[in-house]
Simulated assay, not measured.
Amino acid sequence: MSEPEIRHVCVHDVRFGARVTIVEPCNLYGCEIGDDCFIGPFTEIQKTARIAARTRVQSHTFICELVSIGEDCFIGHGVMFINDTFATGGPAGGRKELWRSTTIGNRVSIGSGATILPVTICDDVVIGAGAVVTKDIAVAGSYVGNPARLLARR
């Protein structure tokens, strides 16, 4: 029997703004975290991800490469961001050219357990808990369900 490769929890090569709070354990690497942000425990934020000022990311959240989150946002517990759409019928593997980006506007709240595929979400949107966002959202309002649909305009 061979020994496993053990990778430790780490915060590495992160560009931090002022007054950022991180609750360990977290994996943050090659990303950017703006002023006055909060990052909860058991969170992973991958390289090239950007979190703007005053955004709260709750526990057990996964923010993959190519995700940009605006100012004054709330990301609930266990939210999953996806950058691989399985465009070829299966995982992209190491083929990053198949990955797609996600852009979240300002003042967006995403409820616990939501899944966000590669989309653009405009400012002033609420995504309900457990929703699955599969298409761009261009109208401010509240969205729920799988796939997420407009419940009420703001």
Rank of each mutant, 00 (worst) to 15 (best):
T88G: 08
E24K: 08
A148T: 07
V126P: 00
A138F: 07
M80C: 09
E65S: 12
T102K: 02
P25N: 11
C31M: 08
I121R: 03
G89K: 09
E65R: 08
E71T: 08
I121F: 04
V14G: 06
A87T: 14
T21V: 15
S101H: 05
S142P: 04
G105I: 00
R149K: 15
G34T: 08
V139F: 06
I39D: 03
R149Q: 14
T88Q: 13
T103G: 07
R154F: 05
D84E: 09
I63W: 01
C73A: 10
V132K: 06
V20D: 01
F38H: 05
G111I: 03
A114D: 03
I22D: 02
V108W: 00
A148E: 05
I121D: 01
P41M: 09
I137E: 02
D36I: 05
D84L: 01
D36S: 07
E44T: 06
P41E: 09
I39C: 05
I116R: 00
N146V: 13
C10D: 14
E5D: 14
V139H: 06
R50F: 02
R7V: 14
F74L: 08
P118G: 09
G94H: 13
I104V: 07
V133K: 00
K135H: 15
N83C: 06
F38M: 09
T102Q: 03
C37Y: 04
R56H: 11
T61K: 00
P41H: 06
V144D: 09
G76S: 07
R56D: 04
A114F: 01
G70W: 00
V119L: 05
H77M: 09
C122G: 00
G76E: 01
K135Q: 15
V11L: 12
A92C: 10
C26T: 15
D35M: 11
I51N: 00
G128V: 01
I22L: 13
F81M: 01
Y143Q: 03
R154S: 07
E97A: 13
R54F: 14
A49G: 10
E3M: 14
